[in-house]
Design a binder for these strands. Structure first.
Lengths: 250, 250
DNA sequence: CGAAAGGTTGATGTTGATCAAATAAAGTGG
DNA sequence: CCACTTTATTTGATCAACATCAACCTTTCG
């Protein structure tokens, strides 16, 4: 298996920066950046065999909130959901990690959220100690980690306005555009969205119920803005209309 | 003016860590950590005169979303709100920055949110370039920055479940406990909360309307869990009850 | 083929938003 | 310091969006 190879390719294709706090060209689609910027400084995480590859089948838990945090991870294929649970079972998904994304960098002793596989998933695992040492010795690695965390932070803040101030219709529109934007550039045509997660996951990401998600998608379908190729595959027929809805203009 | 002095004291009193990705004792109250851990490695940002002190009066804008991001900031006194706006004026506050907090570390070219003074505020400003250079030369500075960003990320993720899955009553309870927790240890007694922000700011932080915030606080007052000393000063009479409400157990 | 899981649609209920008015607090100029 | 204006907060009445409850349909898989 050339998983290690695949991983390296993926990692080194993502942009590094000459200054952590002024990264250029990081806007727009995550994958759009890949082609533009190239590795400039040595990054042991990217180059070395510091990580261990592992796979996780659908709905299996990788780690739970409160568990001692010894590792961070990078998604190779599949998808992982990060979520928090309330005592009574209410769930909020804070992020879907897709191929190329890293997660599990935290300041606390223990994980502050739970990580589960949305579908069958392959990951690379790094021990916290290894990452810490690599960060000390290699500024490029340290910058890479910071950049990843900053990206996650920026995404969380967009998520906040969605949950706090957008209607169900607007959240669905934003969600579809987000998944479209994060879709690997090569895969599918540029208006076809593959959703690795089920309706309950979407609901828990958007702070809605499964029924409301279903109804909102049906409504977009009825108004001709999207077409459902299957439950998990949606063709966006009018991206502009969707953008207008997502920004509250429509 | 001994503002620079005040700043140094504040900065060096916050915990550093021997390994970025395994910081111990960072749980609980932010200010609780201050007394425990002490600076171990040189951190130029803490030691040097790299920042410029400036003040900002109530409701003035420090920077706006989309503006070129040349600086990051640290709050000395007062409070800053970070928010996003939708085209039609809806607003979501993602964070209140209190004395000791830093903000403005981002991966993008431009700020992704707007920063405004909640009340008259004193800040220290660092140029992005300076911070970037300091990060390269001093691992301790780099670690400090990462730790700050990780703290912000963790806070954003807690905020998400609040907006996505908690009721108005639960959000208010969580909010009061959060402000209580972040209150400087010395100031006031440990059940007295001073709110630097008005009701509209609270509403925009919690994803509610001003009326709902007001009603929820009144209800807590009627049930004897809190007492209002003034609009902006609230005495918590039953912290446990408030905790139970915030975690959805009540 | 039949069971189980996932998704859609409909009827009804509840929480929080909206609209409206009263009250309280904070400024402002005399 | 007071009358007056402006702004912030509270309270009440009504409404709408989304949740809940329930049934039906569709897909998946043994």
């Amino acid at each position: 298996m050339s998983l290690t190879h695949e991983f390296q390719e993926d990692f080194s294709s993502r942009g590094a920066m000459d200054n952590v706090l002024s990264i250029g060209g990081a806007k727009g689609a995550r994958h759009a950046a890949s082609a533009i910027v190239r590795e400039a400084q040595p990054d042991v995480l990217a180059a070395g065999n510091l990580g261990v590859t592992l796979s996780l089948s659908r709905n299996k838990t990788l780690f739970e909130e409160g568990e001692k945090a010894d590792y961070s991870y990078r998604v190779i294929s599949g998808a992982v959901r990060l979520c928090k649970l309330l005592p009574d079972g209410r769930r909020q998904i804070s992020d879907f990690c897709l191929p190329g994304d890293t997660f599990g960098f935290i300041a606390e002793e223990s994980y502050t959220l739970t990580a589960e596989a949305v579908e069958d998933t392959v990951l690379v695992r790094y021990s916290r100690q290894t990452v810490g040492e690599a960060c000390k010795s290699f500024p490029a690695t340290s910058e890479r980690v910071l950049a990843e965390v900053l990206r996650e932070l920026s995404s969380a803040k967009s998520h906040l306005i969605m949950l706090g101030r957008q209607t169900a219709r607007e959240r669905i529109a934003s969600f579809l555009l987000m998944v479209l934007d994060r879709q690997p550039a090569d895969k599918y045509c540029d208006t076809r969205v593959y959703l690795p997660m089920g309706r309950q996951d979407i609901a828990d990401y958007l702070g809605l119920t499964i029924e409301t998600v279903s109804r909102a998608i049906s409504e977009l379908r009825r108004s001709g803005i999207v077409r459902a190729l299957s439950t998990r595959e949606i063709l966006i027929r009018d991206v502009d209309a969707l953008s207008e809805i997502s920004s509250g203009c429509a």
